[in-house]
Nucleic acid binder design. Structure first.
Length: 371
DNA sequence: AATACGGGGTG
DNA sequence: CACCCAGTATT
């Protein structure tokens, strides 16, 4: 034991006054978001899955559209996964869409919507945060959802400089958050903390002078708000790809299943990189890239014309930054694809808008029509 | 505990 | 361009 263990700091807790200040601020200043207008657990679950690692501004229009298409658990459970993925296109983290569909099927099988943290936690795609948030918001259960916003607010308010990804730190944060549950509606506690994190206690340039709980904030007192929460840097890998845009009678060749762990069910243009059967690396000359792409197209059962360089798109998938060169030309389906080739299809741009399309492919379509 | 998983908005 | 977002599942 360290020698100073006897004067360890008391566990951080909110005062009753701070809790009142926070909840009063939330009651008057909360944004009118669509998922705050419903008490339907299914709708709230949809919003929470959609909001995982995705900003409110991006989610809002997509949430409305999703619920118009799949208005109930039953409607979603009866839909095909492909329909759900198509509706999810562009939102990223496509496992969420499959999980949401599977969760709807599970709820149908259970006969009723799980109302407890433990019951919700069993649903696919529902982790600690989402189970706590839905339990509190939809059912008034005494749980606080702790997401990135809440972690930031708590680490600053209590000047917690420990790594918030550590289990011990998470326990401290949870206890601190739950100290707000004293007589307050749990759903409002969660959403008030998140709202504060999104509007005042922002990652950069927080507006501490306007914050509802600035008087008790330890980071504001010592000026450490810009340094909290602490985080370790993530390493980003550079990657290079080449994609073939092959047209035939107004339709374009797309594939899916060409990658291993990523974008497995999303349609893309045929793409090669350093790890594919027709590899390219940074040093590969353009003529060889074009040749490898044609070889790939050949393996897909297509006889391509020579391909011309048509531009470059930059995009990122999680920890990779990708430079993708586009090579465009014509091609004719000639025979069956090689047995281990990925799934292929020909789509007009209109048809492509209705299938699960990776964002890079959407960007590529845009690049072509702008020319 | 570390890593993979999308995509986009923002300073 | 770096950071990071209403995180989860897997290793």
């Amino acid at each position: 034991m360290p020698a100073d263990s006897t004067d360890a700091a008391p566990p951080p807790r909110f005062s009753v006054e701070a809790g009142d200040q926070l909840l009063r601020w939330y009651a008057t200043e909360r944004r009118d978001l669509p998922w705050r207008r419903t008490a339907d657990p299914y709708s709230i679950l949809v919003s929470e899955l959609m909001l995982q690692q995705t900003r409110v501004e991006v989610v809002t229009p997509r949430y409305q559209r999703f619920l118009e298409r799949f208005p109930t658990v039953a409607a979603l459970a009866e839909a095909e996964v492909d329909e759900v993925l198509a509706e999810w296109s562009g939102l990223g983290y496509y496992r969420r869409a499959r999980n949401l569909h599977a969760a709807a099927v599970a709820v149908q099988d259970m006969g009723e919507f799980p109302r407890s943290y433990a019951g919700l936690r069993e649903l696919p795609g529902v982790g600690d945060y989402t189970a706590a948030a839905v339990a509190g918001i939809a059912f008034g259960a005494p749980h606080v959802g702790i997401d990135g916003n809440v972690i930031r607010v708590l680490c600053r308010y209590f000047a917690i400089a420990d790594d918030p990804t550590r289990a011990a730190t998470r326990r401290v944060l949870r206890a601190a958050a739950e100290s707000l549950l004293n007589g307050q509606p749990p759903g409002d506690v969660t959403q008030a903390l998140m709202e504060l994190g999104a509007r005042m206690c922002t990652p950069r340039s927080p507006t501490c002078g306007e914050c509802a709980i600035r008087s008790g904030c330890a980071a504001r007192a010592d000026g450490s708000q810009a340094l909290l929460p602490v985080r370790k840097q993530t390493k980003v890998h550079e990657a290079i790809e080449a994609a073939a845009v092959i047209e035939h009678d107004g339709s374009y060749l797309l594939t899916r299943g060409q990658r291993v762990g990523v974008l497995t069910e999303m349609w893309e243009f045929p793409t090669i990189d350093s790890r594919t059967a027709e590899p390219i690396v940074e040093e590969t000359p353009p003529a060889v890239r074009e040749e490898r792409l044609r070889a790939y197209a050949h393996r897909l059962g297509v006889e391509p014309s020579p391909l011309r360089a048509a531009g470059t798109i930059r995009h990122g998938i999680t920890n990779r930054r990708i430079t993708c060169e586009i090579y465009a030309g014509n091609g004719t389906p000639t025979r069956a694809a090689h047995s281990d080739a990925p799934e292929t299809g020909w789509f007009t741009p209109t048809e492509a808008a209705q299938i699960p399309l990776a964002a890079s492919a959407r960007r590529t379509f845009e690049l072509l029509t702008v020319d």
